[in-house]
Design a protein around this nucleic acid. Structure first.
Lengths: 219, 219
DNA sequence: AGCACAGAACTGGACGGTCCAGTTCTGTTG
DNA sequence: CAACAGAACTGGACCGTCCAGTTCTGTGCT
């Protein structure tokens, strides 16, 4: 109600308190991603954010609350990064190229050390924090596949795809593209994240299979 | 050299020591799967196995050693369960039916609460125990896809499939079949494990896409 | 066979040392 | 004066060890 815009519980805010709060969040993100939930201790977070422990607890009531905050923020943040621009297929653009580009955009965002580590972290804590895992699922794969289904339905209406169930087609496309590199990086570590060239080959091969099954017959 | 068969360092063994050892391993498996590595304490394992803590440490030098033992055992055990019988395609059998049956066998083994929890556990500890994750990858997806590639190469030689790279085809088949239910169960918990009927529909849809891309043309 | 005995394995509990979440207290700074 | 830093502190958990006393198991002796 004052002259200043209130902090949106997100990014804005120049006050001393807001700055400290962000420092804590940044430090907590780093430490939690590195050491996991139980492996993290609050002293390290306070030290890394150059803030006293008292201040940490002034902003976040508990370790659990801080954890939920940063994981929740990262999931929605990452989800938004991928899906805020869904370019339509241009009139003179090749369908296969369009799908490959879409796949590559998705892959380059998800196959990032931070995002991969977030995934591992949330999966490892499914039992302790089932809600966080559900949110990650909704804002990640579920969201991607919902958008894909809409795109495919549109393409089918334009006669460019032959699709029974759009949701199933979206699932198939999504996993044809993502699964191999994702699972590899998941278990073999960040060093196993494929190069850009490998990702392109992977995307092209996946698109080829997808179009063989769902492409319209004249080709 | 005696009348009795020697213990194979694995299952056999009737002595008191061997019995206690198995009890410890069983209890440790349960507790580690339930609470994770850091969340598990050795007193609980000792209590659940009805054994003194001293005995636990007589059999396993540390918490870490015990963890490695049970996770390693589970991964090889589960891997062997899937892959010890790879039925050939019968002469009068339909290829699609054969592939669906193969997929279902795979799915019903992997989509088990214990195996899913093992996966979550190992993924959550990739940083702490990279070796365990690598072993799980080798004995799990990598092994499955190697066998698939061999099967597909054979089918291609018999003119039943049209395949460029067998390894890529195996990847595509494997993930077309597994990814959707696996990812769902991974993040949404054991309650999200699909029913047998859903798994069959999922397998049939995946096989349809696979054959559209890799099936031989006369059909 | 049955008995005695030695050594290993096990129990139950206590305990040292460490770690850590969260609190509190005493200055100090904006 | 309110927020903060710095540091100490509380209460509890937990790994790994130790010890005194008990049970098991295999071996040699009668």
């Amino acid at each position: 109600m004052g002259l200043e815009v209130n902090e949106q519980a997100d990014a804005e805010g120049d006050g001393r308190s807001a700055r400290k709060r962000r420092a804590i969040l940044d430090a907590a993100t780093e430490v939690f991603l590195k050491s996991g939930y139980l492996g993290t201790n609050m002293d390290e977070i306070a030290a890394l954010s150059a803030v006293s422990k008292q201040t940490v607890y002034k902003h976040f009531s508990s370790k659990e609350a801080l954890f939920i905050e940063i994981v929740g923020g990262m999931t929605t943040g990452a989800g938004d990064t991928v899906h805020n621009d869904v370019a339509q297929l241009g009139a003179d653009e090749d369908l296969a190229d369009y799908l490959v580009e879409y796949a590559l955009r998705q892959l380059t965002v998800v196959l990032t050390p931070r995002i991969m580590q977030l995934r591992r972290l949330v999966i490892g804590e499914v039992t302790r924090f089932p809600e966080l895992a559900r949110v990650l699922y909704e804002r990640g794969p579920a969201r991607a596949m919902k958008m894909l289904a809409a795109v495919f339905e549109n393409l089918a209406a334009r006669g460019l795809l032959t699709i029974g169930d759009p949701a199933t087609a979206a699932e198939h496309f999504n996993w044809l593209i993502m699964s191999a590199p994702l699972n590899q990086a998941m278990l073999l570590g960040d060093a196993a994240i494929p190069s850009a060239a490998e990702l392109r080959r992977n995307a092209e091969a996946g698109v080829r299979v997808f179009l063989a099954a769902y492409g319209s017959r004249q080709r």
